[in-house]
Computed example of a mutant assay.
Amino acid sequence: MTSLRLALVTRRFWPLVGGAEMVMANLAEELTQQGHQVQIVTAQWHPDWPKQITHRGIPVIRLPNPSVRGWGTVRYMMALGRWLRSHEQDLDAVYVSMLKHSAVVATSRFLNSNVPVVLRAEGAGETGDCAFHESANFGQRIRRSCQQADGFVAPSQQIFDEMAAAQFDRDKIRFIPNGVKVGPLKTDVQRQEARKALATANPILTLAESAPLVVFTGRLHPGKGLTKLVRAWPRVLQRFPMARLWLIGEGPQEGELSSMIGAMGLQSRILLPGAFDTVEDVLAAADAFVLPSLHEGMSIALLEAMVANLPCVVSDIPGNRILIDPEETGLIFPVDEIDRLADQLIRILENQDLSRQLGTAARKRVIEHFSLKRNAEDHVALFHSLMETKRLR
């Protein structure tokens, strides 16, 4: 296939790091490596941020986004519309993260254009885009505008079903599961080196070589079930007093979690180190990964942990069940059962044979079905198909 000129639009982007942002960053990098011309268009969340940067070799354009509630969104939408109009002749397709304000602008701007607009839905359940349309100001209007796009990407079956139930054209929805880069298998030596590197970069991350380390990576958001994880940790400590839990990320629940950890006297046992641009060293240093979410589409964080050969303990929700077969590629626990969460973490930490078995099977599943290379190729095929459809109109 010929090289494409693509704009990936995401209102949040680095250094604001979450699952949706990592999806766009990883996809942009892989598309570039496959020979396509990619630029990322995002918002300038702070006035002192430069308007243009390069991230992983990808040009990033930041558009005005004042902090004043309401006006900031309007100002960003106006700037995005102008940017798209002025670059229409330089683009073959536009790919937008989330069925929200960016999607409204792109869809309306290119409604009668030869440039296809593809919208990617994010999240499922109460935190998903379809739920946003039900609760947000002008949500129904936003949904109607989004429904006019040329194509849609649903990264999980649950998101596909929610979009279809919300009257999005089923024939336009393409199920493209998330993908992650497949790196080399880590060794025990690399685990030790990763721990040393993290401790050098940030002394609070220093821990004994023998200390069990469990990590969570993602947004610190109520939908991630992190307060349950914090409440479960003392039970893990009863069995493994040296165990440490790192909650890697940023988000609206950071203050609440910090206060909770302090009130429970767990400051040295549970750390909130902030967000990382890449979590490779964190995953290499870890002994297990935990994802206690209440809702998920298809978690990039979970995929990254699986391909890193880590045994994973996850909540029993549809988005996680797509990736985790209980007792085969990971362990699950009922969402509201804190004791069961603790028990599964203890099983992982005390049974090395089970840990290795689960990690190996998890990595194999990702390599076979959820590689970033395959994900990018599926996107390119969709873009070409929609370009051809528009050309023939």
Rank of each mutant, 00 (worst) to 15 (best):
L205Q: 04
R191I: 11
A166M: 11
K100V: 15
H221E: 07
G255E: 14
T278Y: 01
P50Y: 01
H384D: 08
V290E: 02
I53V: 15
A199S: 12
S268W: 10
V279A: 00
S113A: 08
V279D: 01
V313M: 00
L323Y: 13
V105I: 12
L272P: 06
N114P: 06
A103C: 12
M24G: 03
D339K: 12
A20W: 01
L302W: 15
I159K: 08
G19Q: 10
D378P: 05
G218Q: 05
L247R: 12
V104D: 11
Q157Y: 00
S102T: 04
D90H: 14
L392Y: 08
A149C: 09
G218W: 07
V307N: 03
R12M: 07
A136Q: 12
E30K: 09
T187S: 14
K181E: 07
P212R: 07
T217Y: 00
G18S: 15
P273V: 13
L63F: 08
N309A: 08
H55W: 05
P203G: 01
H101Y: 13
I300Y: 01
E88L: 03
D353G: 12
Q33F: 02
R391I: 01
V60W: 03
E209W: 02
V189D: 15
N178G: 13
Q167F: 08
E377H: 10
L354D: 11
L27A: 03
F168D: 06
G225M: 03
L213V: 09
F289L: 05
E29G: 10
A376T: 00
I346E: 09
I270T: 09
M22C: 02
K224V: 00
G319S: 07
I176P: 00
V366E: 04
W45L: 14
V189G: 09
I324V: 15
V214P: 03
I159P: 11
I348T: 10
R62W: 00
P241M: 12
I300C: 02
M1V: 10
A305M: 12
I322G: 01
D129Q: 11
R56Q: 09
L310F: 15
V366R: 07
N351S: 11
V38D: 10
V313D: 02
Q37L: 13
Y95R: 03
A25K: 07
A308T: 03
L272I: 08
T227N: 10
L302F: 12
D90F: 14
R144Q: 14
L354W: 06
T10Y: 04
T200A: 11
A342H: 05
A284L: 09
A103N: 13
R56H: 13
T107G: 10
I348V: 14
G319E: 01
Q52G: 02
C312G: 13
A308E: 05
E29Y: 09
T217M: 06
Q140I: 14
G330K: 08
A79V: 06
W49I: 07
A25D: 04
Q192C: 05
